[in-house]
């Protein structure tokens, strides 16, 4: 039966067949304790369904978080469900998801998979790429979203695209705010998308165009 609707399945299949080039691997961290993670099972199921629709191009590797804390830490996964998207050589671009990629964020997930499968060359202007490459201190961008927010995917993708360009220093995270109320409260998130940079050194609300977005990010350096 599955969680994805039949019509959606067909679209996902067509789109992945058309646009994926190389294989991509998702490393997913879960816990068995449902009280600690309401969306672990559904996230796992949906990712498995997407994998099954990818014609063998998307692999999903699951890890028990409690037993693999060290590994999760290496990948930057702190909350559950949490996952990252790696390229064919298992290269990590610091493209991180905390929470279920449902609603509007599903579009983000597909876009990330496709971009990474095509060599992680995101559509970002040359001017911004150069400034991103010049960053040489750690920058963590957490994009807080809700699945019903139509302006949010753009904000998450911008964070992910930035980290693809300079994964050594930049990490881009989606954080599904309603699944992590304490974290959201910590940064006073009440409108999305809200970007929190370096654990609160700066934050801003709204899906800014890439240049303005970058300016906000650079303020923490």
């Amino acid at each position: 039966m599955g969680l994805l609707k039949k019509k959606d399945q067909e679209q996902i299949k067509d789109r992945l067949a058309e646009e994926m080039k190389d294989t991509v691997k998702i490393i997913l961290f879960l816990t068995e304790d449902e009280s600690k993670c309401h969306y672990c099972n559904q996230t796992k199921e949906v990712l498995q369904e997407v994998s099954a629709l990818s014609g063998g191009k998307l692999e999903v590797e699951e890890y028990n978080y409690e037993q693999n804390k060290e590994l999760a830490k290496q990948y930057g996964v702190e909350y559950l469900p949490g996952f990252v998207i790696l390229d064919k050589d298992s290269k990590h671009y610091n493209v991180i998801f905390h929470g279920a990629p449902f609603g509007h964020e599903f579009a983000t997930l597909l876009e990330d998979i496709i971009v990474i499968s095509n060599g992680a060359n995101p559509p970002v202007s040359q001017e911004v790429v150069e400034k991103l490459k010049a960053i040489n201190k750690p920058v963590k961008i957490q994009a807080f979203v809700t699945p019903t927010c139509p302006y949010c995917p753009k904000a998450v993708l911008t964070a992910h695209f930035f980290s693809m360009i300079n994964p050594e220093f930049i990490s881009g995270e989606m954080v599904e705010a309603s699944e992590f109320p304490e974290l959201s409260a910590k940064y006073g998130v009440s409108s999305v998308p809200q970007m929190v940079i370096n654990d609160g050194a700066n934050s801003f609300v709204g899906a800014f165009p890439e240049k303005e977005y970058l300016e906000e990010v650079l303020k923490v350096l």
Partner: peptide, 10 residues
């Protein structure tokens, strides 16, 4: 069933 959105973002 899960609602997912398909806008082609890019």
């Amino acid at each position: 069933m899960i609602d997912v959105v398909f806008f082609d973002l890019g």
